[in-house]
Design a protein around this nucleic acid. Sequence first.
DNA 1: ACAAACGGGACCACCCGTTACT
DNA 2: AGTAACGGGTGGTCCCGTTTGT
Lengths: 191, 191, 191, 191
Amino acid sequence: MAETETRQRMIETAVRLFQRDGYHGTSWRRLVQEAGTPWGSIHHHFPGGKEELGVAAVETGSDAVAALIGHCFEASDSAADAVSRWFEVSAELMVASGFTSACPVASVAMEMVPQSNVLGAASRRALERWEAAVADGLEASGVRPPRSRELAPLLVVLLEGSLVSARLHETREPIAAAAAHAAELVRSEAR
Amino acid sequence: MAETETRQRMIETAVRLFQRDGYHGTSWRRLVQEAGTPWGSIHHHFPGGKEELGVAAVETGSDAVAALIGHCFEASDSAADAVSRWFEVSAELMVASGFTSACPVASVAMEMVPQSNVLGAASRRALERWEAAVADGLEASGVRPPRSRELAPLLVVLLEGSLVSARLHETREPIAAAAAHAAELVRSEAR
Amino acid sequence: MAETETRQRMIETAVRLFQRDGYHGTSWRRLVQEAGTPWGSIHHHFPGGKEELGVAAVETGSDAVAALIGHCFEASDSAADAVSRWFEVSAELMVASGFTSACPVASVAMEMVPQSNVLGAASRRALERWEAAVADGLEASGVRPPRSRELAPLLVVLLEGSLVSARLHETREPIAAAAAHAAELVRSEAR
Amino acid sequence: MAETETRQRMIETAVRLFQRDGYHGTSWRRLVQEAGTPWGSIHHHFPGGKEELGVAAVETGSDAVAALIGHCFEASDSAADAVSRWFEVSAELMVASGFTSACPVASVAMEMVPQSNVLGAASRRALERWEAAVADGLEASGVRPPRSRELAPLLVVLLEGSLVSARLHETREPIAAAAAHAAELVRSEAR
DNA sequence: ACAAACGGGACCACCCGTTACT
DNA sequence: AGTAACGGGTGGTCCCGTTTGT
């Protein structure tokens, strides 16, 4: 069905544009222009307006990251390897975007007051989901529960912060440094 | 003298509003409304337009953070204490703002393509300055040069990331956790 | 169909207002107010902004004048009669507008640097078109080619100048005088 | 006294800018910028606001043209020579300005409703003055009164119209053609 | 005679959402 | 499922005039 494809392309374009220019800095006009989708699809696919697009973009971005985390843990022998891989892929994406991408969730979240906004709420859910995914991965790799639940948010914070730094420095270095530190951190926990 | 007071109030209000709603999400209208300054002063004090206000806000925010870092290191006996204090004050500010503030630089930077924007450039300068300030502080507290220069960006990344996390979780917890980790990290280096 | 009617009404109102108050002296606000068209239609019908409206107005005004010229030559037995009629109708329009109308092209062109402006270019095209129309009419009435091509621009200049004079004097007299002279001029050529 | 010099330079710059961009298209900001005069002089030298500047500019432009007309008739042996010279100098000025100048009066007058505006009134006075100057010159050269009073406005109209045409065509040709015609016209009258 | 700040308002561009009409 | 027009409202910029100090 071609219906979903248009919608999907709009969302994916939104993810990219929101990362680059922010939520308020992205207009419907540019979105449909860059996505190559028809004007009429706006109200058709997103009757809830721009906010609905925002939520969809945040969730899509969240899905991708969660999938990446899961994939890295499944494909790795150790937790440290998984974390390295996760940061590494994130660094690749950053470089590939010409240092215009950052966390697809944070870029939207920074413009919202979380407690009074569906976009803020969606962003929070995304963060919690990633922390859970990391915790699950850690546990599957041998890190025990109380510690895994402490470590997971810290790893997310490290990635989140290093993405901001990398974007501004226009180097992958900050992500690499955070990755090294994160891997070491995990290694010392899981033996 | 009441001359620059208007301009100053506009900048300070901008720092606050940019943190809460982002750069594009903050209009001149709301700015002058919240700052209580006349509409006509906009073009007078910021002939370069909103961008000039943005640069001023980023630099003012950058100054405040740099001063905080310097102050914490001067007032503390050990590097670990200084880092704890720094994160602690940051957490206080976050709580005091009702979790609407984030890094005054990151919130603007996330909406900009750094390499083609004066705001992006200003944000980068701010980040570099903080890293230098932290590195200086670490060295003054006994951390040796090669390691101090590696540690400083990592600490900045930790704070930056934890602010994002705290804003979304609406808890100071992520900052506290990052603080604990950062302090421990520094402690193990400087003995 | 009511589709292009809004756009058309805006253009026609623009022609009138530009003649009266000039291009820069006419605001979108007054335009939509006098045209009775919605504010939101501006960007829809004229995505190129005010300049696009200006070009449309110049071309519409140009069309009307070219049509008038053609009509006068077709309806007249001699070239002198045609020229008299053309000036006469122009004088009528000037009087009917209460001496606020002038040449729809000149009023816009006077505010533009022709070589670096699409409005200047549109104005030039209009002038050339009128000269060609007059030359064609003269030739159809018996004036031979080398002379017809010299006479046509002169007649246009006479009308153009007399409109300015009439507007300032608030009399149709200057146009009448120019008409008499122009008719005589043509009569002495075509025998 | 340096007081008058600043005022004078502002007026002369206004004459030039009004010709190029029109009255409404010229702002105080650009005026003081191009004139190199201080901001504070605006309200000091022109307490009547922009309108006062406009009247001064129209009158200064009017003076210059009237002086030119007088000068041409004084320096010439015949009326035809005088007219040729007058048109010739006008053409030079047009070329020298890069085809951005037109009649200093018409460019302002086109944006005004004459009967309800001091600028319109000033423009009318200017036109009447030129016509009188030309009539006087013609009579001094031997053209008899009823005819001199008919011819003068026509000559002004010819120049006025040819300036518009020259500006748009970006050639001095229309002025030259009008000059030739005007000279011939005068020659046939004064013998 | 000039300088700097104020002050409101208007300008044009553009935004997002809705409604009719394919 | 998509197009085109509507519709009001806000965006940032800049304008013109005034006031307050030299």
